[in-house]
Design a binder for these strands. Structure first.
Length: 260
DNA sequence: ATGGTGGGGAGCCCA
């Protein structure tokens, strides 16, 4: 089972590129972030034509996540538990039925948190603690679970071309890295790192200041695996070439392959 | 130090 994550930065602007990438890469299921539309505005047709079922958790203008799957989905749920007053659409879950077994998949768009310090940074850290609580519940299922998405966290200095430029940024501040490590330390594995190391592998290049031609990238899109998922890991990768296309997202797809 | 580029959707907010 090939599971991917892709922050498409606006599905309406990216439907064509996404459909072409799906036809080439043929992931079984994709977690999308920043669809930036309400559910009714999501252009599902092109993806359904490619055999994908579309499940959205949308929001007007900002955020919004979705799952696209050509395998059966079950037990779909929307929203990160732990704060009924939180209206930001950043979390969606489903069971994905593979040939050899079921994977619980969470697609997530973790808050950016800039400027830090400030209320947005406080929201990010509080959201990460809520995520940690949900992750603990998922891990207790003792089944293959994948949490895939834009984490907006640069885990270590190896995950940035210019780490010194990010030291004060919400993506790399010690509090953000510590919160990410706390989740990992509860028993999750970083799929990209697990496979063949990840130093110098990036998933995001800013639109500004020539970040892409200079390869001034960062790795902030991650797939965290429960132990039962990690035991089935057979491959992982980043589809870096997508960043060089016309009108690209500032993120590229990241993926893992599981024997399931 | 500053400003540089995008998406969404209608004047800025967000990244």
């Amino acid at each position: 089972m090939k599971i991917a994550s892709f922050n498409i930065n606006g599905i309406k602007a990216r439907a064509g590129q996404l459909a072409e990438w799906l036809a080439e890469a043929r992931p079984d299921v994709v977690a999308l972030q920043e669809i930036k539309t309400v559910d009714e505005g999501f252009p599902a047709g092109p993806f359904e034509d490619l055999g994908y079922r579309v499940e959205t958790h949308g929001q007007k203008s900002y955020n919004g996540v979705a799952l696209l799957s050509r395998l059966p989905l079950d037990a779909i749920s929307r929203g990160l538990p732990g704060d009924d007053a939180d209206e930001q659409a950043r979390w969606i879950e489903a069971d994905v039925e593979g040939e050899k077994g079921v994977v619980r998949l969470a697609g997530l768009y973790l808050p950016n948190g800039n400027p830090a310090p400030g209320p947005k940074f406080d929201y990010k850290l509080a959201w990460m603690e809520r995520m940690r609580a949900r992750a603990a519940e998922l891990r207790a299922l003792e089944m293959p679970v994948v949490m895939a998405g834009d984490y907006n966290v640069i885990p270590t200095d190896d995950d940035a071309a210019r780490p010194e430029a990010w030291t004060e940024d919400a993506l790399a501040r010690p509090e953000s890295r510590a919160a990410f490590r706390r989740i990992l330390n509860d028993g999750w594995r970083d799929g990209l790192r697990e496979r063949d190391g990840s130093a110098g592998l990036y998933s995001f290049w800013d639109y500004q200041a020539g970040a892409w031609p200079r390869n001034n990238g960062i790795r902030i899109d991650h797939l965290l695996l429960s132990p039962q998922a990690a035991d089935r890991l057979t491959g992982a990768g980043i589809d870096r070439d997508q960043r060089g296309r016309d009108k690209p997202s500032d993120h590229v797809p990241v993926w893992v392959e599981l024997d399931l």
